[in-house]
Amino acid sequence: MFAVYAAAPSSDDPLAALTLGERPEPEVPAGFVAVTVKAASLNMHDLWTLRGVGIKAEQFPMTLGCDGAGVLADGTEVVLHSVIGDPAWSGDETLDPRRTLLTEKHQGTFADTVVVPARNALPKPAGLTFGEAACMGTAWLTAYRMLFVKSGLRPGQTMLVQGASGGVSTALIELGRAAGMRVWVTGRTEQKRALAAELGAHQTFESGARLPERVDAVFETVGKATWQHSMRALKPGGVIVVSGSTSGPDPSADLQRLFFLQLRVVGSTMGTREELADLLRFCDLAGIRPRIGAELPLERAREGFEQMLAGDTAGKIVFTR
């Protein structure tokens, strides 16, 4: 079958490890299902896989792609949940110490066929295209958990999204607006800020700009480059919800501000199967659709990886079959 995969880790030049070509047809163990992939979306995690982060050397070659949507053998249209836990674990699978993601232990979705545990294939709402559904399992699920499970925000409160154009950020803007939050967004360029406004942001600001007032919550995926601004943007008692650190994981903690203003810093990783099901229903009921910045056939996957590596995104990058 055709696949896009990491042949071996390449820490300094991740695209050097990117390979397009034939891979063996996957076996289907008991309790798993084969999904014919119709669409899959690109995530920063795929670049980390190419660099060899979060994956053991013996796991290569590894088919890339955490997210996807496709069809089961009986014709059922499904959306994939990429968090794969220990079968013996009960409760929130994101807390399972033995959990893994597609592309870490199990081969990913950038292929004609992907094999996943049967419970990881959820029914696709008819109102979502395969391309839209393929955006849900990582970036949109991460945003949903950050906003509705971790932040504690109520409709009418103000949220700040650091970074305007990535997959998680664009999802946060759309979900926050639909849920009745006042959504503020920072962006490095006028083009990125214009995208945020188009998606529903009430106000946009240059990165690091002084805000008109302090906010109830900040949503962080950038890390070191925006952390100081995030801390200073919060009201006393406010919360920063963190799900990534693309600019570096070692910001100044600013502990004096943290304890004196009684701020909270909350980590958030992916989401549960039940949260993905809720997200799909919410998008279907509210008519929310993910912003797809680029849709390419899988054979042109290298172009999508180049765009992500350069930071040239305007929503999700989706590969189709």
Rank of each mutant, 00 (worst) to 15 (best):
F2V: 03
V4A: 12
Y5R: 02
Y5I: 10
A6I: 05
A7V: 06
P9Y: 14
S10L: 08
D12K: 01
E22P: 00
P24T: 08
P26Q: 10
G31S: 12
V33D: 11
V35I: 15
V37H: 01
A39V: 03
L42R: 00
M44F: 15
M44W: 15
H45R: 11
D46F: 05
L47D: 02
W48A: 06
W48I: 04
L50S: 10
R51Q: 15
V53S: 11
Q59P: 00
Q59E: 13
F60D: 03
P61I: 12
L64P: 00
L64Y: 07
G65W: 01
C66T: 10
G70L: 09
D74M: 13
G75E: 12
T94L: 13
D96R: 01
R99Q: 12
L102I: 07
L102T: 03
Q107W: 12
Q107Y: 09
T109M: 12
V115C: 09
N120C: 14
N120G: 07
N120R: 03
L122R: 03
A126Q: 08
F130K: 00
M136P: 03
G137P: 01
T142V: 09
V149M: 12
V149H: 11
S151P: 02
T158L: 04
M159T: 00
G166Q: 08
S169F: 06
A179H: 10
G180R: 04
W184C: 00
W184I: 02
T186D: 05
A194T: 05
L195D: 03
Q203C: 08
Q203Y: 05
T204C: 05
F205S: 02
P212M: 09
P212G: 04
D216M: 08
T221G: 14
Q228E: 15
Q228S: 11
H229V: 05
M231E: 02
M231H: 00
V239A: 14
S243C: 15
G244F: 06
T246N: 03
S247A: 14
G248H: 10
P251G: 11
D254Y: 07
Q256V: 14
F259T: 02
Q262T: 07
V265A: 14
V266A: 15
G267H: 11
G267Y: 12
E275A: 10
L276R: 00
L276A: 07
D284K: 00
A286H: 05
P290M: 11
A294Q: 11
E295A: 14
E295F: 07
L298A: 13
A301T: 03
A301I: 06
E306W: 07
E306H: 02
L309F: 05
L309Q: 06
A310G: 03
G311F: 06
G311W: 04
G311M: 09
I317A: 06
R321A: 15
